[in-house]
């Protein structure tokens, strides 16, 4: 029960941080607060038994994402958001979508219900057989590297493509800038 309350408390904290990030006009402060957001998310993942996800979120989400945001701010010279605009159409869209999603949650199985359909298929097999199939105690690692190895291969392809695209976008920046100056 206390664990559930802690999870709810952390989710409320995440919402508060997300609203604060939206309201902040300093981009530097928003980037740092977003790092904190990832760290609180990692804490909640630990309470939800997803320790591997928590480690990844803390390292990749709080670490690398924050570094990427800060290097973007270093490469550009814009530090603050120009102004806040109140967007009535956006607000209506968000409220409508949120209402539909809230309505949809009534059809979902209750939180942490052991009878939920998610737990009936595949998961029992992984938990019973992965120790003898793969031979390591961590079921998440067994699935990631072996049962769903092609997923991980696809992930590597996506990361490689993104890396090549970022290099293509930023690698030639200096030379193209110089060319433009010469043309001027």
């Amino acid at each position: 029960m206390t664990e559930n309350l802690l999870i709810l408390l952390l989710l409320v904290m995440l919402i508060v941080i997300a609203v604060a990030v939206h309201r902040l006009r300093s981009l530097f402060a928003a980037a740092m607060l977003f790092g904190l957001f990832s760290l609180v998310a990692a804490l909640a993942y630990v309470l939800l038994d997803a320790v591997d996800v928590a480690l990844t979120e803390a390292a990749v989400g709080a670490g690398i994402s924050t570094i990427l945001m800060l290097s973007t701010l270093a490469l550009t010279h814009q530090r603050t958001e120009a102004r806040h605009r109140r967007h009535l159409a956006a607000l209506c869209t968000v409220i409508f979508t949120g209402a539909v999603l809230l309505w949809a949650t009534t059809d979902m199985p209750g939180f942490a219900d052991p009878e939920s359909p998610v737990h009936q298929h595949l998961a029992p097999y992984f938990l019973q057989e992965s120790a003898s199939d793969i031979g390591i105690p961590n079921a998440v690692t067994s699935i990631l590297a072996s049962y769903r190895g092609y997923d991980t291969l696809g992930e590597v392809v996506v990361v490689f493509t993104a890396g090549v695209a970022v290099l293509g976008l930023l690698g030639g920046r200096r030379s193209s800038g110089r060319q433009r100056r010469e043309e001027d």
Binding site: A50, T76, V118, A162, A165, L169
Partner: peptide, 28 residues
């Protein structure tokens, strides 16, 4: 707890950082 969603989200976190990196490069 069910390990399968954990695996899917592990992959999704890494992919999300890749897309963020690409988006930030476009912003630059």
């Amino acid at each position: 707890s069910n390990p399968l969603p954990h695996v899917l989200i592990l992959t999704a976190i890494v992919v999300s950082v890749a897309t963020t990196a690409l988006g930030l490069a476009l912003v630059v």
